[in-house]
Simulated assay, not measured.
Amino acid sequence: MIDLIHQDWFVTAEGQCQPRPIARPWELLQDHYYLHQFLSDIVQLLSNAATETDQWDYLPQIRQRVRQLMLNSYWLTTQRAEPDPKTGAAVLTLYDEIGYPLTVQTVTTNPGVTTPIHNHGTWGVVALLEGQERHTLWRQQANPDRLERVGHHTLRSGEIISFCPEAIHQVETIGPTPALTFQLYGDTQPQARYQFEPDPFLAKPF
């Protein structure tokens, strides 16, 4: 069961996790809000951006649409794959076609699963439907190249965290139960997405 009232967050390029205002839940409730309506709304929002790099300016509106989907779609919480026994994680793509500008998926991870330190090369919005995650936040310093850990943030069921394209994080599933997330990303450019090692500094395609 997703809690109705929770905080939204935004992670900057400097690794700061900032609270963001949310709409009152009862203003978002409606009889139905289907995935195809949600995707159409997002694509329409992004069509207002002059360039792809301007898309993340629309994160406040995108977060609101994601919360609207969370509140009105029981179906969303049923879309999950069983984690792989070896990796402890599973990704289920909810919609995809050639040239589609969004990544839309749910991810299920077992307790204790930790991702590499990484960025996404685009804006992102992650809604935690079940469980808990700890996001360790980093920032890259160009001169000299090094990675600095800024802090961490615990994301709880019902909360949404969003990222600017330069944000760097590492995610660990914590608590006694698996985490289920709904994840939405912009058009990721492979040459802009990296996995990092902090000491000595190393960046490689992810």
Score class of each variant (00 low, 15 high):
Ile2Thr: 14
His6Asp: 14
Gln7Trp: 02
Gln7Thr: 13
Trp9Cys: 00
Phe10Tyr: 13
Val11Ser: 06
Thr12Met: 06
Thr12Tyr: 06
Ala13Trp: 03
Glu14Gln: 15
Cys17Trp: 00
Gln18Ala: 01
Pro19Ile: 02
Pro19Gly: 02
Pro25Tyr: 08
Tyr33Cys: 09
Leu35Met: 15
His36Ile: 07
Ile42Ser: 01
Leu46Asp: 00
Ala49Phe: 03
Ala50Trp: 06
Ala50Arg: 12
Thr51Tyr: 07
Gln55Met: 12
Asp57His: 08
Asp57Ile: 06
Gln61Leu: 12
Ile62Gln: 02
Ile62Lys: 01
Ile62Asp: 03
Arg63Tyr: 00
Gln64Tyr: 01
Arg67Ile: 05
Gln68Cys: 08
Leu71Ile: 06
Asn72Trp: 01
Leu76His: 08
Thr78Gln: 15
Thr78Val: 01
Glu82Cys: 08
Asp84Phe: 02
Pro85Arg: 12
Pro85Thr: 12
Pro85Asn: 10
Gly88Trp: 08
Gly88Arg: 07
Ala90Pro: 14
Val91Asp: 13
Leu92Phe: 04
Thr93Phe: 02
Leu94His: 11
Leu94Ser: 08
Glu97Thr: 12
Glu97Met: 12
Glu97Cys: 09
Ile98Asp: 11
Ile98Gln: 13
Ile98Val: 11
Gly99Met: 05
Gly99Thr: 05
Tyr100Pro: 06
Tyr100Val: 04
Tyr100Glu: 08
Pro101Glu: 05
Leu102Asn: 05
Val104Glu: 04
Gln105Gly: 00
Gln105Asn: 12
Asn110Met: 14
Pro111Ala: 02
Pro111Cys: 00
Pro111Tyr: 03
Pro111Lys: 01
Gly112Asn: 01
Pro116Phe: 10
Asn119Arg: 06
Gly121Gln: 00
Trp123Cys: 02
Trp123Val: 03
Gly124Trp: 03
Gly124Thr: 02
Val125Thr: 01
Val126Tyr: 03
Ala127Pro: 09
Leu128Cys: 08
Leu128Ser: 05
Glu133Asp: 11
Glu133His: 09
Arg134Ser: 08
Trp138Ala: 04
Trp138Ile: 05
Gln140Glu: 14
Gln140Lys: 15
Gln141Trp: 09
Gln141Asn: 12
Ala142Arg: 14
Pro144Arg: 09
Arg146Gln: 12
Leu147Pro: 09
Glu148Trp: 02
Arg149Gln: 15
Arg149Met: 15
His152Trp: 09
His152Leu: 01
His153Glu: 02
His153Ile: 02
Thr154Asn: 09
Glu159Asn: 00
Ile160Trp: 06
Ile160Gly: 05
Cys164Phe: 10
Pro165Tyr: 04
Glu166Phe: 10
Ala167Asp: 05
Ala167Ser: 14
His169Gln: 13
Gln170Trp: 06
Gly175Leu: 05
Pro176Tyr: 03
Thr177Gly: 04
Thr177Val: 10
Pro178Gln: 04
Leu180Tyr: 07
Leu184Glu: 02
Leu184Asp: 03
Tyr185Pro: 05
Gly186Val: 01
Asp187Glu: 11
Thr188Tyr: 07
Gln191Leu: 10
Arg193Phe: 04
Arg193Met: 14
Arg193Pro: 08
Tyr194Lys: 12
Tyr194Met: 14
Tyr194Ile: 06
Glu197Val: 13
Glu197Lys: 11
Pro200His: 00
Phe201Gln: 00
Pro205Asn: 03
Phe206Lys: 13
